[in-house]
Amino acid sequence: MNVGIETGPVRTGGYASSPERSGLAKFVSDTSAVFVREILLLLRDPMTLIFSLLQPLVFLALFGPLLTGALGQGSTAETLQWFVPGVIVMISLFGTSMTGSNLLYELMTGSYERILATPLSRSSLLVGRALKEFAPLVVQGLLIVVLCVPFGFILHPLHLLAGLVVLGIFGIGVGALSCALALAAQNREWLFWTVQQTVLFPLLILSGMMLPLDTGPGWMRTVALFNPLTYIVDLERALLGGSFTDPDVLQGVAAAVATCAVGLVVGIRRTRRTA
């Protein structure tokens, strides 16, 4: 008797699960599905993207002119050449460190549990979310640079592209750590924001992002050596200054890759433990 049983892929929560899919192919497919979902959510509510861009623009407009005298630069163009790379890194840090806030909302509303009921691999849930951070970084970084070109900023397109790729790698790691923090702090939203804010601003200040650390106290320069963000800022200044051979470039790439690796390892372990 035909009881209407259908064969073929089974759909759970809108995602197709095929027994033939396994290994790397399944991971890539699942990660792509999560990435597309996260990007669509961002496009439906672009205010987060706009807000994360407004604050660096305010720093650029109000803090930049003050640096002209503080740095001893002879022109606004020279100041921008030093300050703009730090602003782009600031965008990356602000945006990716708040990735976990979206996950916190899904945990409170129960939508994350529904995602866990799908056949998506647990690793792809985190990697797809982290990869979503790369697209906004590219758009925001390009916009900042384009706005500064009329004021004397010298644009090196290939160097800018390389800098954005490295920032994307770094952003994936920070985004993964932010998601891991959200999973650890579920039902305690205050804990997520306390840790995020406590860590964010010391990292920002101790990277030389807004002010050079050369004239700072010795303890501050020493602590900065252990801050991965220091090497990312130095890399961006070297690349946007037009150099691929500066030693800061290699050190920055190493810092970005290390941050990405640590973030993914910690995030994937936390995701599997929570699931």
Rank of each mutant, 00 (worst) to 15 (best):
F83Y: 15
S111R: 05
T68H: 03
T271E: 10
G263R: 03
H159E: 10
N187E: 06
S101E: 10
T274Y: 14
P85I: 09
L116W: 09
V199E: 04
I50N: 08
L158P: 00
A182E: 10
G95A: 11
F59V: 07
V266Y: 08
L103V: 04
E20W: 09
N227W: 05
D248L: 08
P247S: 01
E189Q: 15
F94Y: 14
D234G: 03
A275Y: 04
V249P: 00
L225D: 13
T118F: 02
P19T: 10
S92A: 13
L103Q: 04
V265R: 02
R11W: 05
T271W: 04
M210N: 14
L49N: 03
Y105V: 09
E113G: 09
S207V: 08
T194K: 03
F51E: 08
F151S: 15
A254Q: 14
T259I: 15
F83A: 13
A25R: 15
L40T: 14
L120R: 00
V10M: 07
P217I: 11
S111D: 06
T7L: 13
G175I: 04
S101T: 08
F244G: 00
G263V: 03
L211R: 11
T7C: 04
L125I: 10
L264P: 07
L43F: 13
A130E: 09
T68V: 14
L250W: 06
L53F: 15
M108V: 01
L53N: 02
V262R: 02
E6Y: 03
E133H: 04
L206Q: 02
A176K: 05
L167S: 08
L158N: 07
L161M: 12
H156F: 14
L239K: 03
L49E: 00
L177K: 09
G23S: 03
I144Q: 08
S18P: 00
R129A: 10
L206S: 11
L200V: 08
V34C: 10
L71D: 11
R44L: 08
A185L: 05
I5Q: 07
R114T: 03
T198E: 01
G23W: 04
R129M: 07
A224V: 12
I91H: 12
G263A: 04
P19Y: 09
L177P: 08
A254E: 13
I205F: 15
P212K: 07
L103A: 01
G175L: 08
L155P: 03
V166I: 15
L225R: 15
T109F: 05
T274I: 11
L142Y: 03
S17W: 09
S111C: 02
W219T: 05
M220F: 07
R11T: 07
C179Y: 04
R37Q: 00
M47I: 13
R21H: 10
L60R: 01
N187C: 00
M90I: 01
L125M: 15
F192N: 13
A25T: 14
V165E: 08
L164C: 05
E106N: 07
G64T: 01
G74C: 00
I91Q: 12
V265N: 03
R188A: 12
E38R: 07
L203T: 00
Y105I: 05
L126P: 02
D246M: 01
L161K: 01
L142C: 07
G95T: 15
